[in-house]
């Protein structure tokens, strides 16, 4: 069982941490609901509401790329995104079981991003790739679920472009900055991301 072997490398505290990061972003989504509702409503009359989701879509992949940044091992991004989607479902997202399916698809995208660098780049490039792949995977997933293909081709391409851009900003740049800041605080001492941070500098003068 390959899955079992990979799963074994995840200790309880890793799993909870991945889950809590998922919970953190769930809290962020909840807090942004008001803003997002306004955006959605404002765009509706122009028929542009469909873009609202794409603008912030990148935030959905942040749990995956951040967890991979911290744990730096195969499957971390996938498991993180998958667990985050289960938690999202438990909290009452209207997608229900579909959210978990999409979580798995997005997680696979997140993971493929890191596979492309051979799990060697957990810096900005790796994070951006992870986000972009997650965006592409999620888009393909939506085409299969049949929620986009009735739109005209230009709009579909625009949606994809927006989503990828959102992923580059949120999943790539912002996750990377937040992850780097986190490593600097010293709380990641027992994780791979914290291991390569030099010992704290105490300046004697």
């Amino acid at each position: 069982m390959v899955a079992e072997r990979i799963g074994r490398k995840f200790e309880l505290k890793d799993i909870i941490m991945i889950g809590v990061i998922g919970v953190l972003f769930a809290a962020v989504y909840l807090a942004t609901t008001a803003l997002w509702t306004i955006l959605q409503a404002a765009l509706t009359p122009f028929g542009a509401a469909t873009f609202a989701v794409d603008i912030i879509y990148g935030t959905w992949f942040m749990a995956g790329s951040l967890s991979a940044f911290i744990l730096r091992k195969p499957a971390a991004a996938f498991i993180a995104e998958f667990l985050a989607s289960i938690i999202e479902m438990l909290m009452g997202n209207f997608g229900g079981p579909m959210v978990v399916l999409f979580g798995a698809i997005q997680g696979a995208g997140n993971e493929v991003g890191f596979v492309l660098t051979g799990y060697r780049n957990f810096r900005l490039l790796g994070m951006i790739l992870s986000g972009v792949m997650a965006a592409v995977f999620s888009f393909v997933g939506e085409i299969f679920a049949g929620t986009v293909e009735l739109l005209s081709p230009e709009i579909v391409v625009a949606k994809l472009a927006l989503r990828v851009a959102s992923a580059v900003v949120f999943t790539g740049v912002i996750s990377w900055l937040a992850g780097k800041g986190l490593a600097r605080t010293g709380v990641l001492k027992s994780y791979p991301a914290g291991a390569d941070v030099p010992r704290a500098r105490i300046l004697e003068d």
Partner: peptide
């Protein structure tokens, strides 16, 4: 749970209405 879904659905209807593919599926 359903109200946010309804909001998005309405948005989606208008998006599809404005920017529909040429042929109906």
């Amino acid at each position: 749970i359903l109200l946010p879904a309804l909001l998005i659905a309405v948005g989606m209807f208008f998006s599809a209405y404005h920017f529909s593919a040429d042929t109906a599926m």
